[in-house]
Design a protein around this nucleic acid. Structure first.
Length: 739
DNA sequence: AGCACGCCGACT
DNA sequence: GTCGGCGTGCTC
């Protein structure tokens, strides 16, 4: 006898878990994980749809009370089936529960209600309703009377609102509906996000010679069987988008569908407009501001074949297209492709799997590819396509690096070095624009010396130590701690401490230095209001300001033709983050920033200020030399066994009670150590997570590194089982993360 | 979501 | 005592 774990297709949290059913004899060899089946459910044995999420030979429930599933109904639901198989893969790969994986992949389940918004309306005249209400009140039917009264007030009553606000339940409503006094109606309206109809059609531009060459190389790869994923490494401003558009056109002409993933931040009105302009009604765009219901509507349109192209952030990867032909991931290196919630999937890896499963092609693009993708390209797993020339052969900007230690020695303590100040002055004189950029991403209080640039690092992990409120310096990988230092251990200077600089202070300094300049500031504070992001950018593009100051959000893919100067104010801010990827991120940010300069007809310039002017990530970014950066960084990852040289498994445990967390983590660490010692893998940690406390929930983390992915997966599986068997972990939340 | 069960106030 | 509304809890 086999038993199937099934998730019931009822959109309610209370049944959001699996139920076990017996599999009838004749279906035993046919049934597979991911199939959609019919099951009797609940007291009335109502027939419902269910998703098979697992099969086993041993029952986990009293067999005398277990029902039998009635049939397989998957013939036309192939899209769903594939997505469920994808969820099963994600569950294994990233160590989440199946329910969590299914929820990420099939937003359909929760959203049924949101889509079919239900209303209650009166089915009788108002006078009659008044009479009925009176009768109900004099009787004992207070709840029903309440409902009728509410309907007299408000003709169309929201179903969910009604049940929430005055506790209306089905047993209150049904008699009224049966007697024909009220009626339940449903609206089915698509909530359109952007009105594509008003955007004029645009023709795709003709490819430049290098673009055409890249396109041809991709065509060649697509003829192979099976075609490899393609990585387009194109310098900033080389026009990768044009190549994508041609590829998209080709694939939809074949009658297949396309998913385009873009980083959240790039989902601007401009991008959306361009897609609508080129492909009109065939496109739909998702973004995180969309409500669950709106997102469901778009997915439904995709499933019905009303659209051919879906553009959106990582969640758009799960668009239920029936004949998927191509997945494009733009700015493939972006951090936002990695999910923060369980399953902590990476869109690049997951896209690769989905593409393989559905015979779709995959194209990644970036000016600064992730080490993971570039390594695969070097190993021949991906096809590497280069786009080396900027549009119309415009030169890359001239870059210089300023040594802030030198500035301090010369007595300049301002955030602006002398050469940067001079350069800004020049731009103002010529009526050109400047962008000043503060790469604060992931900024966590590291400690550095302003005289010699020394940064305090963990002796075991080679990542920057973080200063905590209690004054101690802590490593977030292994938990190493040491007291605060008063003097620089290398040069003895007392100028050692945390880094303090914000966009606001810089704006003030600029006002003082250049009283006539018009300055715009763009950071988290100034972009919180809806639409303000667009407003600031379009105002700067229209040259209504001379200087734009901001965090990394200003360096992403915008075209400002009058900008001829970019200044990176403190490259060290992203270089010394307590994370092994900080050099990669710094290189990416600086390269992107530098690429904003000189996009128009006038040549551009860029100035990078740093306490580590000779660090390879800064030097190679200044030289715009990706290959050199890759070699250096990869050597470092090999040396330290950091990904992609090795794989890394982290176990994140969180809980409200710090003591309980501490205890649970100790037990867990002991267990993991025992398992890992069989493979001779050292366990790193436990340590407080980089963000040690979120919303009063404490977080601790363990790390394991190994070159063989399967060994880590085995350790993860065993740990998962151990957690399941021990009730002591019930009150802790445990997440696996896998890189 | 839908159904049974059990509590509680009103009425024969 | 009994009837029926209405909240609660369970569904393999």
């Amino acid at each position: 006898m086999t038993y199937a774990d099934i998730i019931v297709d009822i959109s309610h949290e209370k049944v959001d878990r699996s139920f076990q059913y017996k599999v009838p004899e004749e279906l035993q060899h046919k049934l597979q994980v991911g199939m959609v089946v019919t099951i009797p459910f609940g007291n009335g044995n109502h027939e419902r749809k269910g998703y098979v999420i697992g099969l086993s030979d041993t029952p986990a429930f009293d067999t005398s009370r277990m029902k039998e599933l009635t049939g397989i109904c998957s013939s036309e639901e192939t899209t769903e089936e594939r997505l469920i198989a994808l969820a099963a893969w994600m569950k294994n790969q990233y160590g989440s529960t199946m329910v969590q994986a299914l929820k990420t992949v099939l937003p359909v389940r929760e959203k049924v209600k949101a889509k079919e918004k239900r209303y209650i309306i009166l089915n009788v005249s108002e006078e009659e309703a008044e009479k009925i209400a009176g009768k109900l009140e004099s009787g004992r039917c207070k709840a029903r009377a309440r409902l009728v009264r509410a309907l007299l007030e408000e003709k169309k009553l929201d179903y969910t609102k009604a049940s929430k606000e005055f506790g209306m339940t089905a047993s209150v409503l049904r008699p009224l509906a049966d007697e024909g006094i009220v009626q339940v109606v449903q609206d089915e309206v698509y909530r359109m996000t952007v009105d594509g109809a008003n955007i004029p059609h645009e023709e795709l531009s003709i490819l430049t010679e290098p673009q055409q060459e890249a396109f041809d190389q991709i065509q060649e790869e697509w003829k192979a069987d099976p075609p490899r994923p393609v990585l387009i490494h194109g310098v900033t401003g080389s026009g990768k988008t044009q190549v994508y558009m041609k590829l998209i056109r080709q694939v939809i002409d074949e009658g297949k569908q396309v998913i385009v993933l873009v980083p959240e931040i790039a989902l601007t009105y401009q991008t959306v407009r361009r897609f609508y302009g080129w492909f009109g009604e065939k496109v739909s765009v998702l973004n995180s501001r969309l409500s669950a219901g709106e997102r469901y509507d778009q997915f439904k349109r995709a499933k019905r074949g009303e659209i051919q192209i879906m553009v959106g952030p990582r969640s758009a990867l799960f668009t239920p297209f029936s004949n998927l032909g191509l997945i494009i991931i733009d700015e493939e290196h972006e951090q936002s492709y990695k999910s923060e919630n369980s399953p902590r999937y990476h869109a690049r890896e997951t896209a690769l799997y989905r593409a393989q499963m559905e015979n779709a092609r995959l194209v990644l693009g970036s000016a600064t590819p992730s080490l993971e993708a570039y390594t695969k390209a070097k190993d021949g797993e991906f096809r590497l396509v280069k786009l080396d020339a900027r549009f119309e052969d415009r030169p890359l900007p001239k870059v210089s690096v300023v040594d802030l230690r030198e500035e301090l020695r010369e007595g300049n303590r301002s955030v602006l070095s002398r050469s940067l100040r001079k350069a800004i002055e020049n731009r103002l004189k010529c009526g050109e624009q400047a962008i000043l950029f503060l790469n604060r991403r992931g900024y966590a209080g590291f400690v550095s010396c302003r005289s010699c640039g020394e940064v305090l690092k963990c002796p075991h992990c080679d990542v920057a130590l973080t200063e905590h409120n209690n004054g101690r310096l802590v490593c977030h990988y292994c938990g190493y701690e040491q007291p605060r230092v008063e003097k620089c251990p290398v040069c003895g200077s007392p100028y050692i401490g945390g880094f303090k600089a914000g966009t606001q202070q810089i704006e003030q300094v600029l006002h003082k230095n250049f009283p006539k300049a018009r300055i715009l500031r763009m950071d988290y504070d100034t972009t919180r209001a809806k639409g303000s992001y667009e407003k600031i950018l379009s105002s700067f593009a229209a040259h209504e300001a001379d200087i734009l100051v901001g965090t990394q959000m200003i360096v992403k893919g915008h075209d400002f033709p009058d900008v001829t100067l970019v200044g990176a104010l403190a490259a060290d801010l992203s270089l010394n983050v307590a994370d092994y990827r900080c050099a990669e991120r710094t290189f990416q940010l600086l390269t992107q920033a530098v690429g904003r300069s000189g996009r128009g007809t006038k040549p551009g310039e860029a100035i990078i200020q740093s306490y580590h002017p000779d660090h390879y990530s800064i030097q190679t970014a200044a030289a715009q030399d990706y290959e050199a950066f890759y070699q250096e960084e990869m050597a470092y990852r090999m040396l330290m066994d950091y990904p992609p040289a090795a794989h890394m498994l982290s176990v994140l445990v969180s809980g409200e009670n710090e003591e309980l967390l501490e205890q649970g983590m100790d037990y867990l660490a002991k267990f993991v150590e025992r398992i890992a010692s069989r493979y001779r893998i050292p366990v790193i940690g436990p340590a407080y997570a980089a963000v040690g406390k979120v919303n009063d929930i404490y977080r601790k983390v363990l790390y394991l590194k190994h070159r063989d992915e399967r060994i880590l997966q085995d350790i993860k599986d065993k740990t998962e089982k151990y957690i399941e068997l021990n009730s002591g972990f019930r009150r802790l939340y445990i997440q696996f993360d896998y890189t």
